[in-house]
Amino acid sequence: MALVIPKETYSGKIYNVQLGSGAKAVTIGGASALPFLGFEGTFPNRPAVALEVMDIAPDDWPETLKKAIGSAGSNPVQWAKFCQQSGADMVALRLMGTHPDQKNKSPEEAAKIAAEVAAAIDIPLMILGSGHAEKDTQVLQAAAAATRGKNCAIGKAVEENYKTVAAAAMANDHKLIAMSQLDVNLAKQLNILLTQMGFDKERIIMDPMSSALGYGLEYTYSVMERIRLAALLQNDPMMQTPIVCDIGANVWKVKETMASDAEMPEWGGLEDRALAWESVTASAMITAGADMLIMRHPGAAAKAKEVISELMG
């Protein structure tokens, strides 16, 4: 008797979300089966890799990163162009300088930089606040307005500020990144609340809260797996949004990406080790179903794209 491969049938499907416009527009999502199970469903879109840029120089980033970015890091527009030239599918502009503990830049300053970056690149743009829930409401409102018509992804909307951030995305025709803290039920709840305020669920990208290899990555991919099972098997419309994994910010804070060769001779050379740490973290998230990744090192991003190419076949 011939071998019959048991197949799961899925009733749900992930929404397609388009970012940017023109020839370099990126569409993510669309999966109709668990990640890369091509014999069970279709995967019309490749996961997109975004490289991260800040509105301030990356002074507190590890040396390996600073070396890779070089002089472009001193200017957000140059830095964004550098990311585009490095082969990124998208640029993720993190407005870190607006954080009250950083440079406490004004929303207007942030908006100006966002507009300049958007004008300088033709790949899609993601605009992230500093993670200060209160300040982010003003910063993202201004930045969303300044980039109106660019079809960006704006975020992150969290429990404390989702109304204002979502309103800013809605008013300016952007997509929204909604983040909850490693909890499937809270992720669903946030999507319900956004939908109830009139935000189209098909314009949401879910951030399950990422981590780095060795630092709780398994919690993230467990949450992602449960989100996808609810989306595909239970046909839960609140769970059918694409997923973004913000990994660079986590990876480049752990000892493995910073400890020098002299400090940790048994760990191997720092540069190879650090790049491997980010690309392996990315691979895990890709296989868990990430539709979009935010990364920091162009070399690691290139490796992640290789993995994607192999998996997409």
Partner: peptide, 12 residues
Amino acid sequence: GKKMYAHSYLDM
């Protein structure tokens, strides 16, 4: 366990 819990599950 056929639907995922969220505080507002009754609204969906």
